[in-house]
Design a protein around this nucleic acid. Structure first.
Lengths: 204, 204
DNA sequence: CCGAAATAGGCAATTTTTTGCCGAAAATCA
DNA sequence: TGATTTTCGGCAAAAAATTGCCTATTTCGG
């Protein structure tokens, strides 16, 4: 799991809304904030676009004519169980929010949304440690139910350590402090689990 | 299935609300529906009760004087990453619902809640297959990023064991086989982590 | 009710993990 | 470059976890 020389370009965001005014305004604003934005004004089109290229985030309205945002998200989840989804809605009721979160929504905002708030939430969702949290769900939830207990615990320990190393850019001392673990113990675990701090440092 | 001489066949529910009228009314109604209900009128008391005995569900108000329902749930999740939580709130805003779901809430209902709806949701949450699904969704990653390494690993171990127990309806022998773990080790871990197989068996 | 099977706790031997201390190697900085 | 900080492995004592054996209790099916 080496993060070699990934140029890490701009995050690719898919924006879905049936209202062209909202669509244009939000797209413009997100682009101003250095995001690569693709727009769709209906769910079918959005699903098609997702099939064709990779996105880092999907932002969708909840109320749309053909298909609700929840139906769209359900369809999306069939092929993309991890892709972060941010819901926007003008007249959200509690049950919609509950349903959206159960589908694994990254966040849920009320329209009209303040541009500053939108950018703040989007940035948060796209932040490395947030993505790592999403990865964690696959890694351990969906993971191999047949693996022995010990292996699964070791996999989780590996995740925790790698995650902390990424978070602190490979600085062991910070990891020690964050995880509240003995230095010697951490070193031993890293050796045993085959973790190298060098391969987890940022490169730019 | 077997309703013979089970010492505690009825699900044990903890009801937390600072309003004594609401507390009494809901408790009475839940008891009429064959649930074993314990009440608390403040979060500290609730946390103490949970430390002392095993519950199958916690129902809590969101707005309370000393500590919000979200703070309460956060504290609860430190020791009980899997215990289903049902939130009730009169003036819920979207962000509260999002936060609650992120803490692994089983459901979120608006006050005043129709007794029939309440019972329907509670029954649904307590259904074995629902609990299994909740285990997969919430799990351990609700634990905060600042918790010590050891605590997080323990939370994960707890998750694995509780998940397996639910999956096999409390049959330890099947859990041993699935997790490929020594029987003695499993028993010790369950004791140390405070896991009871009885509270994870199916019941109706 | 009885007998068989499953479950769980006490105990002690064994194994593994954790920890502190030492010094060496590597990275960082002035 | 040289000084300082950070990282890391060897070693051994201490602590904790794992395991097997034995037995008590509970559960289950007649």
């Amino acid at each position: 799991m080496t993060m070699t020389s990934d140029p890490s370009p701009r995050p690719h965001v898919l924006l879905l809304d049936d209202d062209h005014d909202v669509l244009g305004a939000n797209a413009r604003f997100l682009r101003l904030n250095n995001l690569d934005v693709t727009v769709a004004d209906n769910p079918e089109r959005a699903l098609q676009l997702i099939k064709d290229s990779a996105f880092d985030l999907v932002i969708t309205d909840l109320r749309m004519p053909d298909m609700s945002g929840l139906q769209f998200a359900t369809a999306l989840r069939e092929t993309q169980p991890l892709l972060p989804i941010l819901f926007l809605s003008a007249y959200a009721v509690i049950t919609d929010v509950v349903s959206a979160m159960r589908l694994g929504a990254a966040d849920f905002l009320e329209k009209p949304v303040e541009p500053d708030i939108l950018i703040e939430r989007v940035t948060h969702i796209l932040a490395p440690h947030q993505r790592a949290a999403a990865l964690q769900r696959v890694a351990f939830d969906a993971a191999d139910q047949t693996a022995p207990f010990k292996n699964r615990v070791h996999a989780y320990e590996r995740y925790l350590i790698e995650h902390a190393l990424v978070r602190f850019d490979g600085r062991v001392s910070d990891v020690l402090n964050a995880l509240q673990i003995n230095r010697r113990t951490l070193n031993d675990k890293m050796t045993k689990l085959g973790i190298s701090r060098h391969s987890l440092k940022a490169q730019d």
